[in-house]
Simulated scan of single mutants.
Amino acid sequence: MSEVGRIGFGVADVMALRSQVLARSTALREVRAASETGGSVAAGAAQPPGAGFADTLHKALKQVSAVQAHSSQMQVAYERGQVTDVAQVMLARQEAGVAFEATLQVRNKLLNAYQDIMRMGG
């Protein structure tokens, strides 16, 4: 019976941790949405229409690089014992993985579009 009590206590701890992770994830999404909305309005007003594809691509790659650097810093801090919340470290690693995967998909789409354009010319 004591094992059942421990399992119940463990489940409660896991559920509490889950709710904390979900709350932090929601907060991160809200912060990101606010920063993207503010950043895109300012960038759109400063650049002429159609002149910002290379700049936009460069900014996106810089952001992915920053996310990956943050993930690495979090992992190193966790290994040193400076960060004790493993959920933060895992969230940073997942965010870096998703950002890299999205970048890879964009690269693939751009490469396919380039190849299609090159086939049209010939």
Rank of each mutant, 00 (worst) to 15 (best):
L28C: 06
L111G: 01
G44A: 13
I117Q: 15
Q73P: 00
Y114Q: 11
G50S: 04
A16E: 10
S19R: 13
S2P: 03
S40A: 07
E30R: 13
R24D: 08
Q68Y: 01
D55A: 13
S40W: 09
H58D: 03
S71P: 01
L17H: 05
Q73E: 12
L57R: 08
E95A: 03
A51Y: 12
R32Q: 14
D55G: 14
N112G: 00
V98I: 09
G38L: 15
R24M: 01
E3P: 07
V41R: 15
G52P: 07
E95D: 04
Q82G: 03
Q47V: 07
R119Q: 08
S2K: 04
R29Q: 11
G81E: 03
I7T: 02
S71Y: 04
V4C: 00
N108H: 12
A43D: 11
A77C: 02
Q82V: 10
A16Q: 06
G44N: 11
Q94K: 10
F100S: 15
A60M: 09
A23L: 09
V76M: 03
L91G: 04
V67F: 04
L17R: 14
A66R: 13
L28I: 01
R93Q: 11
V83D: 03
S71E: 04
T37N: 13
A54C: 02
V21T: 09
E30D: 13
A51K: 13
T103F: 10
L57A: 12
E95R: 07
P49K: 11
R6L: 09
R6S: 04
S72W: 04
Q68L: 02
V106S: 06
E79I: 06
S72L: 08
Y78P: 01
Q88E: 11
A23K: 10
V89C: 07
S19D: 11
K62V: 11
M118A: 10
Q82K: 12
S72A: 12
K59A: 13
S2F: 01
R18S: 08
A12K: 08
S65N: 11
E101V: 10
I117C: 07
A34I: 09
V11P: 00
A23P: 00
G81Y: 02
T37Q: 12
P49C: 04
T84V: 06
V76P: 00
A96W: 08
G52L: 05
R6C: 00
G44F: 06
S25K: 06
G10K: 01
T56G: 15
T103D: 04
S71I: 04
M120I: 03
E101K: 15
A102Q: 14
K59D: 14
A34S: 14
A46F: 03
N108Q: 14
V64I: 10
G44K: 10
E36S: 07
V89T: 03
Y114A: 12
T103N: 09
A66W: 08
S25L: 01
E101N: 12
